[in-house]
Design a binder for these strands. Structure first.
Length: 128
RNA sequence: CAAGCAGGCCGGGCGGUCGCGCCCUGAGCAUCCUCAGGGUGAGGAAAGUCCGGACUCCGCAGAGCACGGUGCUGGCUAACGGCCAGGCGGGGCGACCCGACGGAUAGGGCCACAGAAACAUACCGCCUGAAUCAUUUCAGGUAAGGGUGAAAAGGUGGUGUAAGAGACCACCGGCGGGGCUGGUGACAGUCCCGGCCAGGCAACCCCCACCGGGAGCAAGGCCAAGCAGGAGGGAGCGCCUGCGGGCGCAGGGAGCUGCUCGUGCCCUUUGACCUCCGGGUAGGCCGCAUGAGGCGCACGGUAACGUGCGUCCCAGAUAGAUGACCGCCACCCCAUCCAGGGGGACAGAAUCCGGCUUACAGGCCUGCUUGGGUG
RNA sequence: GCCCCCAUCGUCUAGAGGCCUAGGACACCGCCCUUUCAAGGCGGCGACAGGGAUUCGAAUUCCCUUGGGGGCA
């Protein structure tokens, strides 16, 4: 993921964490805040509570990869911060991927998939 | 073959599809954005931050004190609390391993409880004398035996004695002093003398020798929005007033793409605006990777290591790059008749190096020891 | 990243080599007191972060590990 699509400054992280909305599941916390840009930006936080340096690096890389592969389907114009929780240290890639998808779906930040009738119907309902 | 000891090394390999950091080249006005091509991208401990340096800033005439560290000897090194070699002590049948290993007659302090006594003595004893019908008591001698304790003035045999005792003698062991021999030295060997004058703790203070100025790359340097600060320039009259200010005319200023018009806004001595100055926050850049560098060969040295020649360039991020998915092979485990199933330790660069310490699945190589077997 | 500090019952703490089988307060449990509760009294439960070293002897001294906390732009 290129640098422009990432959150870079401590201040940006604080803004999103304090002013944005948040969703959580067993592995992750997602915070989101509109950013008035034509694209979305992402940040990843793994604290020392999760584990050693090796564990934290791996967690962050898995998260970044999961988000990279889904970037086309994520709504533009948001700053998103993913915070890893303790169970992340044992998670495999597909579990991380599923956790990311679940949170994005709950936050309604996924673009409507042409093949997915359910989500299209939901968008229609929102428009009504 | 089994058990073990020492030293060195590895820490899966190849390929495909997506993706990331840095460097170089080219193109798009472009160190910064985009695209294309090429190169490169975690460790033996990158870890703990326990030592030592380099580097940077601060301090500094010199010396001493304080404080901290190290502590057998010689060497290596930029330096070290590291390494090599040797000595001594201890452990192991052995290969080998382990050792904070200076000083306790420079001084101070401590040694609980127990025990008579913890560094100087006598509780039970033993012996002599006196008193006493006797039990026993008193005075003196003694340190062999008993008991206490972690620790109590060397061991064996004899002479000696009232009983004993290094009181004396022989041998052994230890201590102190001196000489000789070997060794750079620690030390070893040997001879003579002394007198058994006799504990332990210096990871208690201390003494001796040697070493150390303080902080740390978030060091430090450069550029520098904004907000304040300083210097200079800077355009006025009238009316009203409840003295805060307001209104009119005139003028000035910055802005609205360059000019004009127009339009609001701000200001005219409690100063709009313009110019300059120093310090410096956010932020950015440098520091930042060619180095006490790696590899190979030769020479010197028992070795650590050094010297010379050749050759190579080998991470550099800043919410922090080395990831995801898959195939084949190798390895290990389960099942072993096949099919098959499962697994991959400890751990992630952050200024850089030399060490130490701690963690670690599994595997490879070399030398050596002990025991057994076979030829 | 660099540099410091701390660790004792459930909680807050005392302790400076032997007097420690570790003391105190609050909390908890039981009994007494009270019609009952609180307060009070008596008794009980309960800890030296882990490992090694020095020492006759370690909560205390030294080393390593683990876990907390703080400072530096």
């Amino acid at each position: 993921m290129k640098k422009v699509y990432r959150l870079r400054k401590n201040e940006q992280f604080h803004t999103v964490r304090s002013k944005g909305r948040s969703w959580a599941n067993r592995w992750l916390v997602l915070c989101a805040l509109p950013n008035d840009l034509p694209y979305s930006r992402f940040g990843f936080t793994v604290s020392r509570r999760v584990g050693s340096a090796v564990v934290r690096n791996r967690a962050r890389r898995l998260l970044r990869e999961a988000v990279r592969l889904r970037r086309e389907t994520i709504a533009p114009g948001w700053d998103l911060v993913f915070v890893a929780r303790a169970p992340m240290k044992e998670a495999a890639f597909h579990e991380v991927d599923r956790a990311v998808e679940q949170l994005l779906r709950r936050a309604r930040l996924l673009l409507p998939d042409p093949d997915d009738e359910e989500s299209q119907e939901r968008v229609k309902k929102d428009e009504e």
